[in-house]
Design a protein around this nucleic acid. Sequence first.
DNA 1: TAGGTTGCTTAAAGGGTTTAAGCAAACGAC
DNA 2: GTCGTTTGCTTAAACCCTTTAAGCAACCTA
Lengths: 214, 214
Amino acid sequence: MVRAGLTKDAVVRAAADLADRDGLEAVTLSALARRFGVTTAGMYSHVAGLGDLLDRLSAFCLEESADLLAAAIAGRAGPDAVAALARVYRDYARAHPGRYAATRRPALPDGHAIPAGRRHADLARAALRQYGLDATREVHAVRLLGSTIHGFISLEGSGAFAHSRPSASASWNAILDALAATIAGWSPIDDETPPRSVRAPAGRRPSADMGGET
Amino acid sequence: MVRAGLTKDAVVRAAADLADRDGLEAVTLSALARRFGVTTAGMYSHVAGLGDLLDRLSAFCLEESADLLAAAIAGRAGPDAVAALARVYRDYARAHPGRYAATRRPALPDGHAIPAGRRHADLARAALRQYGLDATREVHAVRLLGSTIHGFISLEGSGAFAHSRPSASASWNAILDALAATIAGWSPIDDETPPRSVRAPAGRRPSADMGGET
DNA sequence: TAGGTTGCTTAAAGGGTTTAAGCAAACGAC
DNA sequence: GTCGTTTGCTTAAACCCTTTAAGCAACCTA
């Protein structure tokens, strides 16, 4: 009886790849067992069940994307940091749709995804640090950021923007400009001249390199 | 052999109620068959399969919410129409989480949900009519609206705002104010003085009656 | 009232999850 | 090195869900 030599980590990584390849609904214990040449019941040696696997997958993908976020935000502030954060999310979702879908699953209480989720919230607050928002407005801003970014990505991913002009990326740029302007308008320091049209505020030019118009 | 007397419509309505009660994942042909006192295979007399049922359910809920949207928007314009539209979506999602979840499923090509989805897009454009946006900015605005509203509702529904202050409704109001201000800023007619803080633009007061702080 | 249509049934196959019991490979201790 | 324990896996079995096929009986219509 040769052992397959699985580990918890290998299982979660295989689940992530399977999710990207065939969709999150396709990640199933029996599909993974098939891929590893192992019986389905054997998977229970590494994972407590499907729910546990999905929770671990969610945590794994949240940590992975949090690493990307941290790297992208480092050394940036204000609108640049916000644009970098948004771009990481969208790029991650487009490059890894299954992994991204895993991050959007509601985290189960006391599950592995909870600390990873908190990390994302912390990173969002870090990206907003320069604005000097008061506590309440900071929470509003974090929620506005999350709503807009994840809402757009969700709609884009479900093909809602596929069959109409202008391109999704054009709207993405316009929306990010508006988002940055709104938050700047909430800021006590950057309060002098909120931009009034789709023109970007001075000091950033996100449109030129945000995802290349597709 | 007494017949249960089912119809396609009764099945879809039962599916909608089941979705609200137990979640969209719980709507299954066998669960519905159980509820009707019928064998699972018997459901195939009314529905081509689970996929077909979910597509019909999605269309049903989209039509239902579109009726609410149409009624709420009628007689309103500008920020009032936008606020009314947003409120309908959030209220619908909170009163009928399963039905709302059904509306968020990606519509399958040539499925029943396609025309209903188009109706939603048309209603969003109607709500924006007064702003007199050019074609491109109108598309941006529709996408911004959808991203923000559905993004917020999705995060709220998954409990992301549950354990922190201020309340989700406070953020909702702040976000809607910002949204209206952004769109007003894109408008050629309402272009004089975009609001610069969370203060609402003149002529609306959404905060007072938007869902009662919970 | 004699059709045909249609709303159901039984039967069966296939895929997924999960638990229980057991065996053998790997590992740590001596 | 072998011994005992741990652990990675297997087989077996129960349960749930979907879907197709075949058939029968209730209902509608002519």
